[in-house]
Design a protein around this nucleic acid. Sequence first.
DNA 1: CTAATTCTTGACTGGTTCGTCCATAACGCT
DNA 2: AGCGTTATGGACGAACCAGTCAAGAATTAG
Lengths: 198, 198
Amino acid sequence: MARPRKFDEQQVLDTARERFWSGGYAATRMEDIAEATGLGKGSLYGAFGGKRELFHRVFDEYCGSVVDAVSRQLRGNDADAYARLSAHVYAMAAATAADTAHRGCLLAKGAAELAEHDETVAKRARAAIEALQALLEGEIAACQRNGDIAADADPGELAALVLAVLRGIEALGKAGASEETLTDIARTALAVLPRPAH
Amino acid sequence: MARPRKFDEQQVLDTARERFWSGGYAATRMEDIAEATGLGKGSLYGAFGGKRELFHRVFDEYCGSVVDAVSRQLRGNDADAYARLSAHVYAMAAATAADTAHRGCLLAKGAAELAEHDETVAKRARAAIEALQALLEGEIAACQRNGDIAADADPGELAALVLAVLRGIEALGKAGASEETLTDIARTALAVLPRPAH
DNA sequence: CTAATTCTTGACTGGTTCGTCCATAACGCT
DNA sequence: AGCGTTATGGACGAACCAGTCAAGAATTAG
């Protein structure tokens, strides 16, 4: 009954994500996003409300997609749990090293820039971190069931440690650490996880 | 022979650091800093050149002070090396948890916002990280000499792991992790470091 | 005291940016 | 086809902000 949109909302969100990710929130102009998407500013504001709301949408979606991706990587039977965990840690090192532009992770970047003054961003970041922790905890418990990690260790504590290492890899990557260093960290972290006594 | 400055340069740098730290680079206005210091904008520009240069001075100084502080914390004889290392890791967890405003570390925040597009910031962050890594490596080597850490482990690799955990604690703190979680991470990280075989 | 030099103050400029507004376009229902 | 409704696009307004400038103030050498 009314004029339909000419643009795909998801595509606009993707483009906006790229801009916010590269430039940060404050340094990205709405007009950049308008030009990059070919939209007029009126459409942009009409569809998303404003810069802050648009960022919230982007950030929300990004956090969700990160958790989803990890969730998919860590899904499977107990027998392969350790292999999946190992692959996940190495993948983080590789992905961080491959990010030669050092833009890092939008979750970390957005939280660093805005969490202090934006409760919405802070909440969303916290939720994502908690979800990641829970996923890792489940994975470590699976490793324990399969005898790949010492059964007497607290899976929650080990998960928190692994999560810290993963976030640390990301942070060091942004500061310019070499691929070798990052891979070393991944290997060492896996190596120090307590194995069951024979 | 000329009119002397009425302000203390160091005090202005301290105030500027607070502002940049709270608000980030882009969101901090030069006029904020001028008002907070009581200076006129002309004096500010006359003394420091411009916003970017002022931030570089602040960032440089901050990185130096972080490395200095860690260096002081880790200085001492081999017998106390493990105790110092342990105290350092716990101190990071406690300090991060105490930072209820979640402003985190200016090194991480500045690098996240600017390293991608500002080579000076990127270089300085990299140098600071490398210095921290070297300090930790020396400390771990001392622990090994004293028999507190397995002698066959690579001190560089363990140092990189510890550094990743420390940066990870900082990142998780910014995302809202509880003090308990952060302390758990510190304890677990220390617990998994390889001890010498008896 | 005068001159030379550097510092201070705050008004001003030029450019930038968020967000709004409006005339117009596109669509479906009747 | 006509109408109501929603999307479009770009011009516009108002605020903001980095950096400049000029007039005056403080200090010391001579």
